[in-house]
Design a protein around this nucleic acid. Structure first.
Lengths: 154, 154
DNA sequence: CACAAAACTATTGCGTGCAATTGAATTGCG
DNA sequence: CGCAATTCAATTGCACGCAATAGTTTTGTG
């Protein structure tokens, strides 16, 4: 009636068949759960991820190097890092050897934070009923997807 | 040296061991890829997801019902739906039987759009090297995760 | 050395996400 | 019926994401 087609006519657009929606919803649900745990130390989830990368690095990372590790660009990172700087958790310093670069280093308080969030991953996973094997499977699928998605789009 | 602990001391915080990051990065990569395809018809990815839900529904959805399907709340949906209304793709009407509710219906142009995006899911998956089985596994894992995450946090 | 191309971070503008709050409409209970 | 509790959408405020652009600095080439 009225000429409008049923979903039957577009099975590929049925909401329940989309993979993108569970991926999108789950990712945001994880971020929300992290936000609960991280609010205790005043961090957002993207800020936490950046600190993980900085803690991991052997030397102070440039903005672009950090971005490659966390898959974010300078448009997102610059203001985020300024907020971390305001919070006294990192320093931003022009690289003397290459004045285009800005190197990010955790401050002493930034390093100290690591102990305070050490239990966050375990607390997040607790009660989710995800086994170690599930986690490996999921990681493997996501890594493959991500690689394909970040390759130049033909 | 300097008293700062190595990542070795916090293995659970090693960036490469986090599942949250691939999940987060992959979800955004999918959204970006959709954005490329949807820009042709002037839609953002969340707008597209909302239209999928509206197209799927048997009757005009209230904002809250739509939100339950796409996992978004009124704080996000109200402005998004106003933009879809401005674009002439949906109407927003107070429910006469319950004036608290606002019912969302695609306009004729909103229904027409369905044909224009019919090939989007296939174009997105093309070349990603993900099999039907992979997709099922991924969906199953994500659904379980999402259920656990949206359950009240103990 | 000169200078165009490339690399790199910062800025702008817009659209989410989401917690918290507000305000109106409805429900449920005495 | 009366009215407090609940439901619902809208608003506010803040932090992303990201495309596009701008502005420096460096690199590569003649």
């Amino acid at each position: 009636m009225c000429g409008m087609a049923d979903t039957i006519d577009y099975p590929q657009l049925a909401l329940d068949d989309q993979i993108c929606l569970p991926l999108y919803a789950t990712s945001r649900a994880v971020t929300r759960r992290y936000a609960d745990l991280l609010s205790e130390v005043g961090l957002t989830y993207p800020q936490y991820v950046c600190l993980l990368a900085l803690w991991d690095a052997d030397a102070p990372l440039a903005v672009g190097e950090l971005g490659a590790r966390v898959h974010l660009d300078s448009g997102t990172l610059t203001p985020l890092l300024k907020r971390l700087e305001q919070a006294g958790l990192v320093t931003r310093t022009r690289d003397a050897a290459d004045e285009r670069r800005v190197r990010i280093s955790p401050t002493e308080r930034g390093w100290d934070l690591r102990a305070q969030v050490a239990d966050v991953p375990a607390r997040l996973v607790a009660g989710l009923g995800v086994t170690e094997g599930d986690a490996r499977t999921l990681r493997s699928l996501l890594d493959r997807l991500l690689t394909g998605l970040e390759a130049p789009a033909r």
